[in-house]
Design a protein around this nucleic acid. Structure first.
Lengths: 328, 328
DNA sequence: CAGATGGAAGGAAACGTTTACCATGCGGTC
DNA sequence: GACCGCATGGTAAACGTTTCCTTCCATCTG
């Protein structure tokens, strides 16, 4: 037994002849080591777990790709689990990941950071920490100092600020803001950036131009149709996500408004097909893949040595395409 | 030890008082069972592994979602690994999954089914089978009878047949076919379906209208630009994938050809944003999520009882939108 | 009241590795 | 010629569960 183990591990002198015999036996018996036994006796690095609402969304898929990439490059496996937004399932998954001895558990996706949420996260963080794992929050607000968790954010506020500034610089005074759900952290941040840009350019805020809703195509479509029906006056739209922008585009087109001739449009996320829309969409790029990679990197670095950052904010960037033009 | 195990498993009578004491200890010690030890003594169902080229593509992400969904609904974890098309990495992953005691290994993605490929797959199938696992091929051609593998295909040929028939029925006689790489199994099938439809309608095949290339947006763009430069005459385009269709659309637009007024266009895959293009894209829907679910279902059913299918072909369906119109 | 019955708890083996420690044999050194 | 050190191989403990088999004790049963 010992000799086989050492032959396969290659960390101990084994004579050429013995090695050959071992290999022959391995071959003929189709022998493979048993990870569980190996893990029990302590020689296996735990996997990285990604907990996500729905892997199907283009931006989340990129986060997943980043996580997988960084994990494999460090010799870890990636577990992917979806919650479909169910908090109870999230609880179960945290427990499951403690059992699995996951090296890191990466939670992704928008969230309403109320008290219940913070309590839940603090509990997750402590539970995972006690099990030698690490909670990583991606695209979610940071937890109170002292909580054993790592947070990787991106600059929602700055992105929205850039987007609105771009529209204002083009001469648009009445910008329809199609935000996200009130309370949702990223939606609030994006809205703040938008408002800050208005203030910076001394453009008064008008409540009727600030229309919240969900981050979906349908919601974007409905909201634009409704404001058009109501006869609202605007020359540009800042959509809280590219999905919303796509819905808005459809509604504008139905109303015979051409983008960007009649109405300018800016999205948020830079999904891959943004460039294939007509017109191609000016939008804010979020470094999703980089978010995933960073999440894993920070968590594992901290495991291997002590130290490293626990909170990082990645920057976003306005990508200028064809959907913005000065108002007529 | 025994009592704790039984208390937590709940499969043996334990007095209320003892149960309470155990639970209190579990609580105060933050105890969690160790999966590896549990697995060693035989009480753990192996995970399902998904091996994919790149999880970022919209269609493959849906396969992943299907796999994850079916796996969790059966109490299994999902491991996701990407190969970036590297055969050596695929070899390593098969070995890794044997070690992990994966219940099933799902391989997805187009492939050139040459001899080397068949040898490789046969070897994978046998290696996994010997380890009590199951190889599942999704969207790939079946292996020789007797190989211990499960295959879940979809009807490439039928989809292409429908697409071409639709164009022919609309009156298009000269259809530009932007296929995939020669040899790639799905590309060959789609091409066959296209040719069969031409034959069925007694439309002669013309080689100049049959332009192979890769399954990418760029390739679609290039090919259309090239044939337009060469002055080729055609009134409709059948693209081998939606990505190609999007590239074609861009090239047509650059040449001031309007879709569908001047040229009709049909894609393949039905990616989520197909409906958001201008015009919305008529395309062939491939049931990607269903493919993933079926793959897992077949593999696990076979594990749990004996029997069940080893080869399934899911049907595809033409989705009619706005990108096809009779020629002028 | 002796023996049977049954519920609850504990002891110990087994799962398949890794590795610290020990045993053996061999060549070389003083 | 005894001793040492090195290369190699073997033994057994440890990892943390589950579960079979015992044991213990209390309650029935005749």
């Amino acid at each position: 037994m010992a000799t086989v183990s050492r032959t396969l591990a290659g960390n101990y002198p084994v004579s050429t002849e013995t090695r050959a015999r071992v290999m022959a036996a391995v071959e003929s018996l189709h022998y493979v080591v048993n990870v569980h036994a190996k893990a029990l006796s302590g020689g296996v690095a735990g996997p990285v777990a990604l907990v996500i609402q729905d892997i199907t969304g283009p931006s989340l898929a990129h986060v997943a790709a980043g996580v997988e990439q960084e994990a494999t490059s460090r010799g870890r496996l990636s577990l992917v689990c979806s919650t479909r937004g169910d908090a109870a399932r999230e609880d179960d998954l945290i427990q499951l990941m403690r059992e699995q001895h996951a090296a890191a558990v990466v939670l992704v996706g928008g969230v309403v950071p109320d008290d219940a949420y913070h309590r839940r996260m603090a509990e997750y963080a402590k539970a995972l920490d006690a099990a030698g794992s690490r909670l990583v929050l991606v695209g979610r607000p940071p937890l109170p100092a002292g909580t054993p968790a790592t947070v990787v954010e991106y600059d929602d506020r700055g992105g929205a600020f850039q987007a609105t500034s771009h529209l204002l610089a083009a001469g648009h005074g009445r910008i329809l803001f199609l935000g996200g759900e009130p309370g949702l952290s990223s939606a609030e941040q994006r809205r703040e950036g938008h408002l800050a840009a208005l203030r910076a350019h001394s453009v008064p805020y008008e409540e009727e131009l600030d229309v919240p809703g969900s981050y979906t195509r349908t919601s974007g479509y409905r909201r634009v149709r409704d404001v058009l029906d109501a006869g609202l006056d605007f020359t540009a739209v800042l959509a809280g996500t590219d999905a919303i922008a796509v819905g808005a585009l459809a509604a504008l087109r139905e109303a015979d408004l051409r983008v960007p001739r009649d109405v300018s449009l800016v999205g948020f996320d830079d999904v891959p097909y943004a460039t294939d829309l007509t017109p191609s969409l000016t939008t804010v790029r979020v470094p999703y893949e980089e978010l995933g990679r960073t999440a894993v990197r920070l968590a594992l670095d901290r495991e291997e040595r002590i130290g490293g950052d626990n909170h990082v904010v990645l920057s976003t960037q306005l990508v200028i395409r064809e959907s913005v033009r000065p108002p007529r």
